[in-house]
């Protein structure tokens, strides 16, 4: 463990993608998909990453799972098995252990499972790759996991194929596959957004329960704030590659500070026909993430921004009291 007890420790993380007009043409600029972000995820706690489409959530998740290399910055994992490791520096045997300790669950249960493999093969594969146990042990472990995720009796699911399962059941298989190797950290990228209401809550509850029981932390990516409220201890709001606000979930929901967060939260429909929700304004349009000007990324859409915001660099993410951090000169 490091000093502050964080499991994941992200410092100055950046990811840029080159943009060119055509395959052979010169680079026109860079998309700043993830733009100098820093955060910690304490052991056993989950961080929700929210924000509009294209703000850099998935890119952040892929960097943390080392499915992609950062342009700059560091990611440290403080794992009980591996000690403190810098993701950029792990190789060979260490990388193999890392692949076990950090898992990723994707949005689309229809695409993330191989259609030609049985459920048994799918869930057993990570164990086989890791060389964990002998066959009978692996079989027992697969059965145990299927029961854990509510696919019972496991025997009736083992030899089915993904197309023979419903969406909710498929996502349970994806969860079983992620958890079968005892990870410490799971990146869950919109794991329930394709599921229907009556199934979604079951999967959400399953994920929360398992996190607690198995002491797993999530980076929980979602565009649905109400879902983040139920799944995460903390929420970080991203806007154009930057974290603009971060804090304890209930504190964020009751007392959003950043003008973007305020607009975002106030736009969420409320399941109560008697409530007249008042949306907080934001200027139209979407600012481009390609070579953004050196000022607050939200300036072009902000209703409270002034000359100072225009003339200065993007504001730092600062503690505005009780660990609630916001990146805004006007807060």
């Amino acid at each position: 463990m490091d000093e502050n007890g964080a499991l994941v420790n992200v410092i100055g993380l950046e990811k840029r993608f080159a943009v060119s007009a055509g395959v052979f043409s010169r680079v026109k600029g860079y998309i700043h998909a993830v733009d100098d972000i820093s955060f910690d995820i304490p052991l056993g706690r989950s961080l929700g990453l929210v924000g509009e489409s294209g703000c850099g959530k998935t890119t952040t998740g892929k960097l943390l799972a080392r499915l992609m290399d950062p342009t700059a910055g560091h990611i440290y994992l403080n794992d009980e098995l591996m000690g403190r490791i810098d993701l950029a520096e792990i190789r060979g045997q260490e990388l193999k252990i890392f692949r076990r300790r950090v898992q990723i669950i994707f949005q689309d249960p229809y695409e993330s499972l191989n259609p030609r493999r049985t459920i048994y093969d799918t869930v057993e594969e990570p164990l086989r790759v890791q060389g964990t146990g002998i066959l009978v042990e692996r079989e027992a472990r697969v059965v145990q996991l299927l029961e854990l995720v509510g696919l019972t009796p496991a025997a009736s699911f083992l030899f089915r194929f993904p197309h023979e399962l419903s969406g909710g059941q498929r996502q349970r298989v994806a969860i079983a596959r992620a958890l079968v190797v005892n990870p410490a950290f799971v990146v869950a990228d919109e794991p329930t957004s394709m599921l229907d209401v009556s199934i979604r809550i079951g999967v959400m509850q399953l994920m929360s329960e398992l996190a607690e029981r198995l002491n797993v932390s999530y980076l929980y990516i979602t565009h649905d704030l109400a879902v983040a409220r139920y799944m995460c201890h903390e929420i970080a709001v991203m806007y154009l590659g930057k974290i603009v606000e971060q804090g304890e979930t209930e504190e964020m929901i009751k007392n959003p500070l950043h003008p973007y967060t305020q607009a975002l939260f106030s736009a969420v429909p409320i399941p109560n026909p008697r409530r007249d929700r008042v949306a907080i304004g934001i200027k139209g349009g979407v600012s481009a993430p390609i070579d953004p000007p050196q000022r607050c990324r939200f300036y072009d859409r902000c209703l409270v921004g002034d000359q100072f915001c225009h003339d200065n660099d993007h504001p730092p993410l600062e503690d505005k009291g009780a660990g609630h951090r916001a990146a805004c000169y006007k807060v």
Binding site: S166, Q169, S198, I201, G202, M204, A226, R229, F265, N272
Partner: peptide, 19 residues
């Protein structure tokens, strides 16, 4: 079974089974 950000956090109840 519908999460909301309005008011106090209510307990959600999952509906068993599938359509």
């Amino acid at each position: 079974a519908f999460p909301s950000i309005e008011g106090e956090k209510q307990e959600l109840k999952a509906l068993p089974g599938e359509p």
